[in-house]
Computed example of a mutant assay.
Amino acid sequence: MAASIGIMDSAYFVGRNEILTWINDRLHLNLSRVEEAASGAVQCQMLDMTFPGVVPMHKVNFDAKNEYDMIQNYKVLQDVFNKLQITKPLEINRLVKGRPLDNLEFLQWLKRFCDSTNGGIMNENYNPVERRSKGGRERSVKGSNKMPKSLQTNNTPPNSSSVGLTKASGPKPANTAQVQALSKELTDLKLSYDHLGKERDFYFSKLRDVELLCQTPELEDLPIVVAVKKILYATDANESALEDAQEYLNQSLGVKAEVEENGEQEDY
């Protein structure tokens, strides 16, 4: 699926403002430029939200500023790609340069991939701030003002009552197996829908051909054609029109046979 997103796909016509809104809303960040995501950390967390538990967030450095640290993030991302069997090549040398167009194109692809995986539905049980904090490597990322105070007490002693309240009241972690099962079910439903659509179009074209044939002037008054049209144009969805068509056909053929028989008798 990832490899099928070509350069002319509609995904690559999504503007940078929409991309930034998508990132900031889901990860509780406040990025103002796409090149601020050049470190690869944002991409890692987007996949962590889409596939909970797949990304080792403790290895992701949100404070990466130099190319070496950025490359380490992209190595984590490449490992995740391999786990998920994503074949899209990572052009790391271009992305770490922070060029807006390269990073925009990659984020456009990422948005399309994530949306196609979960239907664009956010994982409501996912807490992006907590996931970054647990990694212990978030320092200078532009966080939004939505960060709850309870999440800012990670350095308090383990037996602190505030930590206990945070764990008790915080959102429960997503069940990875359940999310993956639902994602697979959604994919299967989409495939089934596409198959049914093709099957519907196939049989509709057949019925249309039969209808056009029945409308041929030389044929439309024949008893068999009239009987077929009774079936085609029946409006009662709860009852079959076959019995009515057969009755009409039998009557028509019976009358015709009787007329022919009478004609032969007159000849004698």
Rank of each mutant, 00 (worst) to 15 (best):
N250F: 13
L84W: 05
L212I: 12
V14P: 03
I86C: 15
K167M: 11
P56W: 12
F113Y: 07
Y126R: 07
S144V: 08
R26C: 02
N175K: 03
I92T: 09
G164Q: 07
I231P: 01
K142A: 07
F106D: 10
V42I: 13
T117H: 09
V54E: 03
K83N: 15
A38F: 04
N123H: 03
L101F: 11
R99G: 07
E239Y: 15
S192M: 13
Q43E: 15
L182N: 05
L104T: 06
D188Q: 11
G120A: 01
F62P: 11
N155I: 12
M1T: 08
T50G: 05
L232Y: 01
D244E: 14
L110A: 09
K88Y: 10
G164N: 07
K206T: 04
Y12K: 04
L182T: 13
D79K: 03
V14G: 04
Q72L: 11
S133P: 13
S161L: 10
Q152Y: 15
D115K: 08
M46H: 00
Q85R: 12
P173F: 02
D115P: 09
N103V: 06
R137W: 07
P100T: 14
V226S: 03
I92M: 07
V54A: 02
V163I: 09
K146T: 08
G197P: 05
N159T: 08
L191Y: 07
E130N: 10
K97Y: 13
V60Y: 02
R139D: 11
D9Y: 00
P223S: 01
M57P: 10
V210R: 06
I224N: 07
H58G: 10
N24W: 00
N250K: 12
Y68N: 13
V42S: 05
S144M: 15
E247L: 09
K65Y: 10
K229W: 04
N73S: 00
D188T: 03
E243C: 08
R139T: 14
Y68P: 05
I86K: 05
G98W: 01
L47V: 06
V55D: 03
F51Q: 07
L107G: 02
I71T: 09
Q265A: 08
A227L: 11
S205T: 09
S160D: 09
N159H: 13
S144Q: 03
A168P: 11
P157S: 06
K167G: 15
L232F: 04
